[in-house]
Design a protein around this nucleic acid. Structure first.
Lengths: 131, 131
DNA sequence: CAGTATCCCGTCGGATACTG
DNA sequence: CAGTATCCGACGGGATACTG
């Protein structure tokens, strides 16, 4: 998804409370992007080394580093470096990070339920505009 | 959020079932971006005209059009044009669109609960790296 | 009022190369 | 192996102008 930039002039959506809308957007900004979802998913099973996450997610070296830094900064992921040679760094979800899995699964469940509906709707839409 | 581009070489995260991971990413791609969240939020209360959504969301003319087109294509929003002069176009959430509010609120609830924790974590992180 | 088209700049993110 | 730095192409998205 596109990076979310918060700006002054905009109002709050009505489905949720007045001001916390900002918080929601901010959080979506953090957890809504592809690599974050993949990384959290990868780490859901337990601690994992950098390269393991790299392979599992398919992210580029660069993006995974940035993503993990972001998650670490926000307290969602714990980073543990072992001063061995070669270095070994393990990442794991914090309690906070784990708690994120539940809402993500809420989305996941919705996605699974409605994927077909969306696909057929899209097909119909495409067909209609090419009449 | 950043647009999500699905690519071949990548595996599924473990927190969720094997293949539907793609569906989740695809859905996040659609519903995870700023303007979609804003638009769905704006329409949650009921049908609304284009310009009303425009003002409420703070989106640019262009982006709102694109966003609404996307939502319409996916069957989340219904578009009704009245052939008056000047034209009047109303948008409203479909049943499918409404069902999306629930998972979004799941995220919203998480965001509200953990916003503080994330902020302090970030502050601590910033402080630590500037020691 | 709603929608489309064009321009254009910022930034996201992949590839590559270099360090500890 | 893990992380940082640099380069650079691609595209997201705002501003603007023009139609029905």
């Amino acid at each position: 998804m596109k990076r979310i930039k918060l700006r002054p002039g905009m109002a709050r959506p009505g489905w949720d409370d007045p001001e916390d809308c900002r918080a929601v957007l901010k959080v979506l900004d953090r957890i809504g992007d592809k690599w974050t979802v993949m990384a959290v998913g990868a780490l859901a099973d337990g601690p994992m080394r950098f390269n393991a996450v790299l392979r599992l997610t398919g992210a580029s070296h660069r993006m995974l580093t940035l993503t993990l830094r972001g998650l670490e900064a926000e307290g969602l992921v714990k980073r543990t470096a072992y001063a061995t040679i070669p270095p070994k760094v393990e990442y794991e979800l914090t309690r906070l990070g784990h708690s994120l899995i539940e809402p993500l699964q809420s989305i996941a469940a919705w996605a699974k339920r409605n994927r077909r509906a969306m696909e057929t709707a899209r097909a119909k839409f495409e067909a209609a505009k090419a009449e």
